[in-house]
Design a binder for these strands. Structure first.
Lengths: 203, 203
DNA sequence: TAACTATGAATGAAGG
DNA sequence: CCTTCATTCATAGTTA
């Protein structure tokens, strides 16, 4: 990739360990989704759209872009990782419980993965055998159940967040960065829609 | 799919941590190509052979095998993924440029359109619709340059890492010095012995 | 300071 | 060829 973390005025959390002036390399800063972006992504994911098609990915990206630089690939990777990790956690948890119900904690995982703490309510609706096609009823001619994701936004439309609020009561605070789990979170309203954000810049 | 014999490669980089007591399972370790192998593969790919036929795949595999266990399927998959990714990157790159024409100054620009990894000069390959591939730009200068990379190793030897040590930052991008480029033949020097991978009469 | 965790990004392997 | 899953690498951020 090499360009998402475009540090223009994002400011949020862009502190290079060595803020040297000697820019010998591009220093690929990876995309750091902002709380609002994470909220949106989580909402979409928890809405059931765990594997958005390309079209939706672009739309989601455009939506997220209003809160910070982000690319299609970032969105794509986010969903990919989300799905993967959710499944893995589920599997690990099951394996742990099955292996030894007494010591269902502290699975001696080999290096690289680490132990998975807890499992967020992914609502594993795997069902089916094992080759679930995921991706829920892809839009298309859904004439009667717009309860899915119907965020209306255009290229320049500013009323985002029209989705999130019009559907789920905000999933279960899945896992937002620890920093944001503090009780001092502030809820800001964007276009009339509440969105939880951290206590602002750490001052 | 079953066109290529997917033989299960033995084990290349088996890193069994603590698995002695409970023999869990074979633990499918995926092939982890070594830098040298990647260099060879990249060289071949950049030489123009983006879709080697089975015969060549076998040859390449034998070549790579000098540096570690590898199967034909691995080579096959590698080329397939390589091609796919290259194409995707190219598409995204184009989309990005189209979406954000501002990207004419700094290399670190972009944020909207596409966001995908870097794309080495894949060049060539273009067109060919879908059946014809492996087309060489036979316009090679073909100047026998001094040894490009000399690997010091034998079938059972494990002391390698002599190549690339010259100056090439190897990997990260396709910076393979086009030296031994014979018209219609790819030559890779290993231990001073040139391994030619002629273009098989495919298509 | 180093070690660990969470997670973005990359890639091998398959499926279709 | 394209999409998707699984595993691995790399790194920002936190913790001891």
């Amino acid at each position: 990739m090499g360009d998402h973390g475009r540090d223009r005025n994002s400011s949020s959390t862009l502190h290079r360990s060595t803020a040297d002036s000697t820019e010998t390399e591009p220093v690929r800063t990876r995309w750091m989704p902002k709380p609002e972006q994470i909220l949106i992504l989580e909402s979409i994911f928890n809405s059931g759209m765990v594997n958005p098609p390309k079209e939706e990915t672009v739309r989601i990206r455009k939506l997220l872009q209003k809160f910070g630089a982000v690319g299609d690939a970032n969105v794509f990777y986010w969903f990919q990782n989300r799905r993967s990790r959710s499944r893995r956690r589920q599997r690990q948890l099951q394996a742990s419980l099955m292996a030894d119900p007494r010591a269902a904690r502290g699975v001696t995982q080999q290096a690289g993965g680490g132990v998975l703490p807890h499992e967020p309510p992914t609502s594993s609706s795997s069902s089916s055998t094992s080759s679930n096609n995921s991706s829920f009823p892809c839009s298309s001619s859904a004439s009667s159940s717009p309860s899915s994701y119907n965020f209306v936004m255009d290229d320049g439309s500013d009323d985002l967040f029209s989705m999130i609020s019009s559907q789920t009561p905000f999933m279960c605070s899945s896992h937002v960065p620890r920093s944001h789990r503090q009780p001092g979170t502030i809820t800001v309203f964007i276009d009339g829609v509440p969105s939880e954000v951290p206590r602002g810049p750490i001052d």
